[in-house]
């Protein structure tokens, strides 16, 4: 089944009117997608640490239980950290959503097929790991409900959004890791970030 959703539009919709949502963006295309939707200090974009986006989201969700946390990452990145879905399933963070933008390709390295192109179903893995809700999203008409669940529904929530395997212009966030860490903490914690 060929995909009809476009990744930049999906991410832009999920981040629309984000309020105090905290974001983690997996390395590569999903980081560029989040930046294209508007660079924010409250999104932590990864330039490395492949496989760790969901774990970083878990740590953030546990530390900030009153804030919503959304991890936006790619299918290849998620596949490298499948164990973290089991770890999240044990912790049951109600404020955490994992959104996999699934183009079924390793987009940064030559568009090689990932496991999801061969039918590996990440949403069913998440369900088996005790996520409260997990689904494959294919239609634009489903995005409003997904956005609403991310911003206010009971998690942990997982969505695997099938998107067109397009190559897009790069929209890059800052790449200095210490800067990204410091600006996130300043924006979230205020002056306390400097004395903690």
């Amino acid at each position: 089944m060929s995909a009809s959703l476009y990744r930049r539009e999906v991410v832009r919709e999920l981040l629309r009117a984000r309020g105090d949502l905290l974001g983690v963006a997996g390395l590569g295309s999903t980081a560029w997608d989040c930046t294209a939707a508007g660079d924010s200090p409250l999104t932590f974009p990864l330039w490395g640490a492949m496989g760790l986006a969901a774990s970083i989201g878990l740590g953030l969700a546990l530390a900030q239980p009153r804030r919503r946390v959304m991890v936006v990452t790619g299918d290849g990145e998620m596949l490298m950290g499948l164990g973290s879905l089991a770890t999240i399933g044990v912790q049951q963070p109600a404020n955490l959503a994992i959104v996999v933008i699934d183009n079924e390709r390793y987009g940064e390295t030559g568009m090689q097929l990932t496991h999801t192109a061969h039918g590996v179903d990440l949403a069913r893995i998440a369900l088996a790991c005790r996520f409260r809700a997990a689904s494959v999203v294919r239609e634009a008409s489903e995005l409003a409900a997904l956005r609403s669940a991310i911003h206010g529904g009971e998690g942990p929530l997982f969505a695997q959004v099938k998107v067109v395997d397009e190559k897009l212009p790069l929209v890059l966030p800052p790449r200095d890791g210490a800067l990204l860490r410091a600006r996130f903490r300043r924006a979230l914690l205020g002056e306390a970030a400097d004395s903690a």
Partner: peptide
Amino acid sequence: LRTVVLSTEEEGIGLAAGAWLGGARS
């Protein structure tokens, strides 16, 4: 203490980084 069993140690590095972004020590 929030005590988190990991499926591999590498996850713990992500957990600790995320916790620190959120203001918690681990």
